[in-house]
Design a protein around this nucleic acid. Sequence first.
DNA 1: CCTTAATCGAGACGGTACGTCCTGTCTTGTT
DNA 2: AACAAGACAGGACGTACCGTCTCGATTAAGG
Lengths: 188, 188, 188, 188
Amino acid sequence: MQGRPRDPARDEAIRKAALELVTERGYRGMSMEGVAARSGVSKQAVYRRYASKGELLLDALDSVGREVFPVPDTGSLRSDLLPMVRAAFDLHRYSDKAFSQAVAAEAAQGPDFARLAVESVINPRRDLFRGIIARARERGEVTCPDDDVLIDLIYGPMWYALLFDFDRLTDEYAESITDAVLAAARPA
Amino acid sequence: MQGRPRDPARDEAIRKAALELVTERGYRGMSMEGVAARSGVSKQAVYRRYASKGELLLDALDSVGREVFPVPDTGSLRSDLLPMVRAAFDLHRYSDKAFSQAVAAEAAQGPDFARLAVESVINPRRDLFRGIIARARERGEVTCPDDDVLIDLIYGPMWYALLFDFDRLTDEYAESITDAVLAAARPA
Amino acid sequence: MQGRPRDPARDEAIRKAALELVTERGYRGMSMEGVAARSGVSKQAVYRRYASKGELLLDALDSVGREVFPVPDTGSLRSDLLPMVRAAFDLHRYSDKAFSQAVAAEAAQGPDFARLAVESVINPRRDLFRGIIARARERGEVTCPDDDVLIDLIYGPMWYALLFDFDRLTDEYAESITDAVLAAARPA
Amino acid sequence: MQGRPRDPARDEAIRKAALELVTERGYRGMSMEGVAARSGVSKQAVYRRYASKGELLLDALDSVGREVFPVPDTGSLRSDLLPMVRAAFDLHRYSDKAFSQAVAAEAAQGPDFARLAVESVINPRRDLFRGIIARARERGEVTCPDDDVLIDLIYGPMWYALLFDFDRLTDEYAESITDAVLAAARPA
DNA sequence: CCTTAATCGAGACGGTACGTCCTGTCTTGTT
DNA sequence: AACAAGACAGGACGTACCGTCTCGATTAAGG
């Protein structure tokens, strides 16, 4: 037997409240208590779904209609990469900033959440770049052995900027980073 | 000035307790309350010295006998860079890991601490690389216009790994990153 | 009437669980939740039968095979009374202690349950003594006008001892109380 | 060293709130949370003073200006006893009813509080009668060996009536009980 | 030498959030 | 209908820190 099913409307309300709170007031301002209050849901209903603030955070993040960014395939690594990097930086510079900082805050507080975040947020995003790099490698545009290092060169600086609130994720910066990746991909 | 002077022994005890707690129990396990208790000092004595957990964190970090790493000057960018990157990665992989993660956690929670951390920890460390790069530029080893991007290529991936608890800050990784910086420094 | 009839096995299981819990863990340890869990019955099934913890308590109490104590008729008030008082004290001193204390706790918390308890537990027990006293009155052993006062002299001290956990309900005490009742029944 | 002293005004406010709540809403309506809220004091401040609802209850009870009832000494047991019994019944019939029922409820829920209550409330009240009985014994008005039984004959029925919400603590009842005590004190 | 003023410990204080438990109701699908 | 399962709002529980605030007791430097 399976009992009364969870009310999807509540799922929704909880995620919405979490998103709002984290956006408006940052990581510190999003409490389980606050989420319950704002969503008009009992604390139990929140804890039934999420054992911790972190889980809720990730699920809320997931549920945001991650509009799929079409991975480009132009035949040139640079022109494939640049718009992707720009899009990533833009996203984290504006709409997702508070959110990503919350993820960073939680991740830095313990490996449990870190693992979770890697699985559900970090890796999927990294994967977007793997196809591009693989194709470029076939074309001979990439000779360095390790794809992951190249991806680290993109996301590393991005999270670094997010973490310390550098106001650096501009289009020019995206270009600089892209060029660095290109250089590293095919070292002299 | 008059009145009873602050007891330096207490300064020390507080920093020590903070370090111990953050090392043993991570960011979450270091509370002002706990620091006071462990150091055998009153809460007031802590707050008199540090307005916030963050300030204490940074000061404790500062006070760790930052044994000055002698910045090398070998005449070649690669051989200057590599030991520095290795040392940085090593430090954050072992002794300073919990501590740096605490800094990350706090920084991600608000711009106030982020600014503070940049000033007292992030920038000084970046500066270590500036001299190296400047000398290399004079020798013609660096043609890319922006030093900061190069430094981001080092520290970005490092903090990224710290943040999400990647176990990646090995010597090989230091070499990969160094090579990427070299390639980016003098793009084809 | 239509629909599925109630399962008597569940009636039984519920009462049993209630008795066990109240005996093992006292009033505090008997929750509707706990009863449902222990009896392997849904909470709804419990609430369908009993609107409140109190009702369940009383019904469970009732259902305990109240082995009927044969009311004596020896021709003398004292020898009728004494075994009855002893039996009552004994019962509440041992097997029924936790249970009666639970009834007391619930009764003290509101007049609703108090009324219920009086009806289903208190009065029936008082009635046991009425016949004895009536017969004694006919024999001229009782001259005081009010039977109820005499019964209060028995049960009052008993519940008082139960309430404040006096360890006083011994056989000697039963004798003392009986003698007091006798004296009060035919005052000088 | 002894730190900041507790604010007596808060002591007072807490007790007052507890009294009000228990009077207005009964035992069930008095929660630690509610007391804190009504008294405008933090929950901590309440828990710092009282480890449990019971302790607070007793202290609040104690603090009520128990106007000392002058123990009479008229030379006759009956005329000493009657006003005392009347006063006791009256008190518990009116002003103290909710309060005493709360004490009963808590006492019935566990021996810890029961012991506490006996010590601070039950025994002191019993002691009021000891002097009277002792004097009467000297005068030869009391021949029964045990004072405690006589006192049980008074307080037993009283708490019994309180517990099950009998509306019986009238002046006539006080007289009946007094006469019963007299009879029991000097049995034929 | 004797104020004067900041320090010290201890710990109270109002808050806020934590995560758990129970109450009594309700909503599923199953029997 | 009753049933198991379990979601639900609400409310209380007792605990932990936060940062501020009294206390009375030191502890130096400056008058």
